[in-house]
Design a protein around this nucleic acid. Structure first.
Lengths: 344, 344
DNA sequence: TTGTATGCGTTATCAC
DNA sequence: GTGATAACGCATACAA
């Protein structure tokens, strides 16, 4: 029965004190070269590994950040997580994760666990239905900085990394107008979602810019379930003034809407053109794509969130009494158009 | 400057001992009901949250598992991670993550960090080039159980959750044979990869079963880069006896190979049919798909890995001296065929 | 039913 | 240069 070695074991073997071992292991200058070398030798002989659980406890610092996302299996969040992990590991930080699966209860329970663990910081993308922000008060008390990512709350005084949809939306409308479209529909997400509000705003602003009057019938929303996505498209098709182009909340919505269009014997991107906010890794040579996507750069956005978080973590030490600065990173979404397919 | 409350603070406020508080907080039966209630009341007044860093340290148990995967942004691994996290959270465990990004060095550094943190268990999908298994010896010494996932080492005495490709491959070849194919190519991954060996084996076994002689020219491999994927396909096209069907290592390979076929003015799934091992979330209505996919069920496979890991963690307490049992979960891959597209 | 004492592994503050 | 000692927050064996 092998015992897990500690600095004490090393100390005993060398008949020196534990503190000397600790210092030697950290290359402390006050320790003699010989001692340092002997300590390191014994350490590797014993396969000594420092107990980070003990260190975290002692230092009140875990060198770990938490990442809470709705669903890791969604391409958008998966990329983000990948970017965040990569950045954190370069900073020699570890990553703790949690999936809210769109449940506010699970979300706050994860937040509490992360607080319990005294993580050094948290990046979170809110669940769709989060309304209660009490938990975040806790975090402030425990001095755990939080950076919101993509799905940000409608609150002032927060740090976030998100995407400014306006530029992409302008490009998209620009593109559609140039192709002669005037009836441009919008299939949006749930109205209470910040992302939906943004899309709607940018849609209105863009149409405004081109002097097109907003037709409320052309704006429909869905809870993002497949059924409602399809129902939303059917409502648009039932209008006396059918849209000739549709901007979809995301690729999943576009997929469902395009399916409806096909089922109605209309031709995608011919009878009705599609542009969507990109979520999926799209194969550039596929035939049934939206005409274009509005790209949001999840990985870059995630990395930016990590950058902000580490800025907060690093600056926290100084503990200035001056007014806090809120970091806000806004990417410009931009449109990427695909090869236009001639569908026979 | 608010101080973070500890059990001592609660104890002081109530003029009782810290141990009483500790026990009350855990609902220990020996503590009187009144005391317990008073303690809980003060705890919530102070917004007390137990310091898990301290608990982990004290209990030598972190209630945290580690998950190491090559790349979170790949759909296959993303699904797996999602499944694992979901399972772990239901067991009230936390999840620590690391991405090897196919670097054996980063992989073993992550493993070391996880050992330092004294995680309760680890699920790992090996990087492509991992050859050194010393780190895993460390883990044994530190009594951290390991479950290999999908990319498993060619070693005995391990626990794993993986996928048995044979059934899916048989179905695929079956399907192709029935459609009249006899020249079936295989674009495989790097030869040293276990996954490649498996695919090759199952390919040979399947052809054997149908009495088709193996033609080594029809078997090419790629390092899974886009360029080599394409190059592999070109080699197949340059054969005097071109294949009429190709089985691809995964969807990415299929994508690149199909692109080559298109560029040569051949028609996908008409001149050359494709079947691939599924990695991507495929839109069921897209036009340029492989004919069929061999499904590997990443989420279910991940959950199975988690199940095994928790079995190990739970049984570890008993610490029997009997011979260890190695848990091996093998899913049967199975073929899913898509709508056959008539490409004009 | 509750309190006291101890220790988990490490680092930091003193001494020498 | 090095050693002794305390402390981090909590849980538990032992006392009372």
């Amino acid at each position: 029965m092998e015992k897990i070695p500690t600095i004490k074991d090393i100390a005993k073997r060398l008949k020196i004190s534990a503190s000397t071992v600790s210092r030697a292991l950290h290359g402390h200058p006050s320790i003699g070269l010989v001692t340092t070398m002997r300590v390191n030798k014994v350490a590797s002989e014993l396969n000594y590994l420092p107990n980070k659980a003990a260190v975290s406890f002692k230092q009140r610092k875990t060198f770990t950040i938490g990442v809470i996302l709705p669903d890791f299996s969604e391409a958008f969040f998966a990329s983000a997580l990948s970017g965040i992990e990569d950045y954190a590991s370069k900073k020699n930080y570890n990553v703790f994760v949690g999936q809210s699966l769109e449940s506010p209860e699970k979300e706050s329970s994860i937040l509490e666990t992360m607080t319990n663990h005294r993580l050094d910081g948290i990046i979170i993308s809110l669940s769709k239905n989060t309304k209660n922000f009490e938990v975040f008060e806790q975090l402030r008390k425990y001095k755990i900085p939080v950076v919101f990512f993509d799905r940000i709350p409608g609150i002032e005084d927060i740090h976030y990394s998100a995407c400014n949809l306006q530029p992409g939306m302008l490009q998209a409308v620009d593109y559609l107008i140039e192709k002669g479209h005037r009836n441009i529909g919008l299939i949006n997400g749930p109205t209470q979602l910040e992302a939906s509000k943004e899309r709607l705003d940018s849609y209105k602003t863009a149409l405004d810019k081109y002097g097109i009057k907003i037709n409320d019938d052309l704006i429909v929303s869905s809870d993002l379930s497949s059924i409602q996505n399809q129902y939303a498209m059917r409502r648009l098709l039932s209008l006396p003034q059918k849209p000739t182009a549709v901007i979809a909340f995301n690729d999943y919505v576009a997929r469902d809407a395009m399916a409806v269009v096909k089922n109605n014997n209309l031709i995608v991107n011919h009878d009705i053109s599609f542009i969507s906010f990109a979520n999926l890794p799209i194969w550039s040579f596929m035939d049934s794509l939206p005409l274009a996507s509005i790209e949001q750069f999840p990985k870059e956005q995630g990395i930016k969130a990590a950058e902000i978080l580490f800025e907060l973590i690093d600056s926290q030490v100084e503990e200035t009494t001056s007014a806090p600065v809120y970091h806000r990173a806004l990417f410009d979404a931009s449109m990427v158009s695909y090869r236009v397919n001639s569908v026979a």
